[in-house]
Simulated assay, not measured.
Amino acid sequence: MRLARSAHTEQPWRIHEFTRDFRIEDVWSYRTAGAGPNDFPVMLAALRGDGGFGKQSAPVRFLFALRWKLGALFGWDKPKASLGSRVPPLHDRLPADLAETVDTAAPRGMPFTPMYELADEAAQELANQTCHTVMHLGWAPASGDSGEYELRMAVLVKPNGRFGRLYMAGIAPFRHLIVYPALTRQWENAWRDRTVARPETTDPHPK
């Protein structure tokens, strides 16, 4: 479900310290029935065990394949346009308590590079010729009085000039009508079908 930007900005997440010059493109929520305040690591494990973007529906796989084809054709994804070339990685600006929570050199099944991972949030980044993007996953109380928690995804972007702004505007209908609904089904099913045990962790925001 699409949420207002305030659903991201009002949470006490560390990501706000490093993305003040990024704009919030999208905020989306994912239902995680029965989830408690300590279950963010469980959700991340469920997502990793679910196969990632490779398990998406045929329309979503087609859109991503088309995007990579266009990127190859027009040079959007060349090394000179990536993290560490066109833009410095946000990870390099993090304090040690955040930077040391992930291994940026570890193999991964998606184009994003991890920034950090905490008990209630995680962030990854990507840069190409169109924009510098951060995908933030956060754990927050669900709306209502259920006491449950839910997963929230925010897409934060810094477009690369006029072309980047036009690109983001052009793909918005595809994100909202095809990609995010399909991602919702996949991620909510991953939570429902999870098989990992819940770790013993403390509430990241004790009262």
Rank of each mutant, 00 (worst) to 15 (best):
residue 153 M to P: 04
residue 140 A to D: 07
residue 73 L to T: 13
residue 143 S to P: 07
residue 137 L to M: 14
residue 153 M to C: 13
residue 160 N to G: 03
residue 100 E to W: 04
residue 155 V to F: 00
residue 72 A to H: 08
residue 76 W to Y: 10
residue 123 A to S: 13
residue 49 G to K: 03
residue 71 G to C: 01
residue 85 S to I: 05
residue 71 G to E: 06
residue 102 V to W: 05
residue 7 A to G: 10
residue 12 P to Y: 07
residue 60 V to M: 07
residue 69 K to T: 13
residue 99 A to D: 03
residue 192 R to I: 10
residue 193 D to F: 04
residue 119 A to L: 14
residue 48 R to V: 02
residue 26 D to C: 10
residue 106 A to S: 11
residue 188 E to K: 02
residue 146 S to E: 10
residue 135 M to Y: 10
residue 27 V to S: 00
residue 103 D to N: 13
residue 15 I to G: 02
residue 142 A to M: 06
residue 55 K to N: 14
residue 185 R to E: 09
residue 103 D to G: 09
residue 172 A to R: 14
residue 55 K to F: 10
residue 56 Q to W: 11
residue 45 A to D: 13
residue 47 L to Q: 10
residue 148 E to N: 05
residue 153 M to D: 02
residue 85 S to L: 09
residue 113 T to L: 08
residue 186 Q to N: 09
residue 89 P to W: 06
residue 80 K to P: 05
residue 3 L to I: 04
residue 100 E to A: 15
residue 62 F to Q: 11
residue 17 E to I: 09
residue 183 L to H: 12
residue 23 R to P: 01
residue 106 A to T: 08
residue 107 P to V: 12
residue 96 A to C: 03
residue 171 I to D: 01
residue 105 A to T: 14
residue 184 T to Q: 12
residue 76 W to V: 00
residue 15 I to S: 01
residue 93 R to Y: 08
residue 46 A to Y: 02
residue 51 G to W: 09
residue 8 H to Q: 12
residue 103 D to S: 10
residue 135 M to I: 15
residue 78 K to H: 10
residue 64 F to P: 02
residue 171 I to K: 02
residue 165 R to P: 05
residue 62 F to R: 09
residue 59 P to N: 03
residue 84 G to W: 04
residue 173 P to S: 05
residue 144 G to V: 06
residue 35 A to Q: 06
residue 166 L to T: 11
residue 101 T to W: 04
residue 28 W to Y: 13
residue 108 R to Y: 04
residue 95 P to Y: 08
residue 202 T to A: 15
residue 92 D to Q: 12
residue 146 S to I: 05
residue 95 P to M: 00
residue 31 R to Q: 14
residue 123 A to T: 02
residue 9 T to Y: 07
residue 168 M to E: 14
residue 71 G to A: 03
residue 74 F to G: 00
residue 133 T to A: 14
residue 89 P to C: 07
residue 175 R to M: 15
residue 123 A to V: 09
residue 192 R to L: 07
residue 41 P to L: 00
residue 35 A to W: 04
residue 177 L to F: 12
residue 170 G to T: 05
residue 67 R to H: 04
residue 16 H to L: 14
residue 175 R to G: 07
residue 73 L to P: 04
residue 26 D to E: 15
residue 110 M to N: 15
residue 167 Y to S: 02
residue 157 V to G: 02
residue 78 K to A: 15
residue 157 V to I: 13
residue 74 F to C: 10
residue 47 L to N: 04
residue 143 S to F: 09
residue 115 M to P: 02
residue 86 R to D: 03
residue 54 G to R: 12
residue 199 P to H: 06
residue 187 W to P: 00
residue 166 L to Q: 11
residue 192 R to Y: 11
residue 37 P to T: 04
residue 105 A to Y: 01
residue 78 K to G: 12
residue 81 A to L: 13
residue 12 P to T: 06
residue 153 M to T: 11
residue 25 E to T: 05
residue 181 P to D: 01
residue 41 P to E: 06
residue 197 A to L: 13
residue 168 M to L: 15
residue 81 A to E: 14
residue 169 A to M: 12
residue 58 A to W: 12
residue 179 V to N: 06
residue 27 V to Y: 00
residue 159 P to G: 08
residue 122 A to K: 06
residue 163 F to I: 11
residue 6 S to E: 15
residue 32 T to N: 09
residue 42 V to N: 08
residue 32 T to V: 11
residue 61 R to N: 10
residue 202 T to I: 09
residue 78 K to N: 12
residue 89 P to V: 01
residue 7 A to N: 08
residue 50 D to Q: 14
residue 16 H to W: 01
residue 192 R to S: 08
residue 111 P to S: 10
residue 12 P to L: 03
residue 30 Y to K: 04
residue 197 A to G: 08
residue 170 G to Y: 05
